[in-house]
Amino acid sequence: MKRLANWRLFSLFAIVALVLSGCGKPYLSTLTPAGEVADIQYDLMGLSTIIMVGVIIVVMLVFVIVFFRFRRKDDRIPKQVEGSHKLEIIWTVIPILLLLVLAVPTVSATFKLADVKTMDDKNSKAVVVNVRSHLYWWDFEYPKQKIVTSQELVVPTDEKVYFSLKSMDVKHSFWIPAVGGKLDTNTDNINKFWLEFDAEKSNEAGNLFYGKCAELCGPSHALMDFKVKAMSKDDFNAWVKDMQSVKAPEKAQTALAQQGQDIFNKSCIGCHAVTPENKMPETARIAPNLSNFGERSRVAGILDHNKEEVKNWIRNPETYKPGNTMTGKYPQMTEDQLNALAEYLMGLKVQD
Rank of each mutant, 00 (worst) to 15 (best):
S124H: 09
T187W: 07
I269V: 15
N265W: 09
T118V: 11
F236S: 01
L216N: 04
V93A: 14
P288L: 02
T106I: 12
S164A: 01
L290S: 01
S108F: 11
V127S: 04
Q258I: 11
L345F: 01
Q332W: 07
E159G: 05
L208M: 06
S291N: 03
Q151H: 02
D184Y: 15
M280H: 02
L98M: 11
F140I: 06
Y136W: 01
Q253H: 15
K117P: 03
I147H: 03
M1R: 07
K2R: 00
R72E: 02
I190Q: 08
E277Q: 14
N306T: 01
A222W: 05
E152S: 03
M231K: 11
W7S: 10
E309I: 05
H85A: 09
E343L: 05
D184V: 13
I50F: 10
F174H: 12
L208G: 04
R8P: 04
A38T: 10
I15S: 07
E335F: 10
E250N: 07
H305K: 07
A14G: 01
Q259M: 13
R8Y: 08
Y320E: 00
V350T: 09
D74S: 15
L153G: 02
A214Y: 14
N289A: 06
I263G: 00
G347I: 07
Y330T: 06
P322D: 04
A38Y: 14
P322M: 09
T187L: 15
K247L: 14
T275E: 03
S84F: 10
G323T: 00
L100P: 08
S133N: 08
H172S: 13
A287I: 07
Q337K: 10
N312V: 04
G54L: 05
E215S: 14
F140W: 09
G301Y: 02
E250V: 15
P78T: 13
F13L: 15
I286D: 01
G24H: 06
F197I: 00
V16T: 14
V37F: 15
D304E: 06
Q259C: 02
L44R: 07
V101D: 03
M243W: 05
A103G: 10
Y42N: 12
V148R: 09
N265V: 11
E88N: 11
I77A: 11
T283A: 09
A248C: 03
L18V: 13
D184I: 11
A230V: 14
F293G: 06
W138G: 07
K229W: 11
G260H: 10
D75L: 15
K227I: 12
K311Q: 08
L20H: 10
K182Q: 11
L61G: 02
L9C: 02
A38G: 12
M224G: 09
I263W: 05
D352A: 13
T283W: 06
P331Q: 08
F209R: 03
K160Q: 07
K266H: 05
H272L: 08
Y42Q: 08
F111I: 10
K25F: 03
K122Q: 02
L99G: 10
M168L: 08
K227T: 14
A230E: 06
T157P: 03
K227S: 13
E152C: 02
V161N: 04
G180K: 08
A257N: 03
C213F: 12
G24Q: 01
P322T: 01
A287P: 01
R72W: 12
N130I: 04
Y142H: 00
M1S: 05
S150P: 01
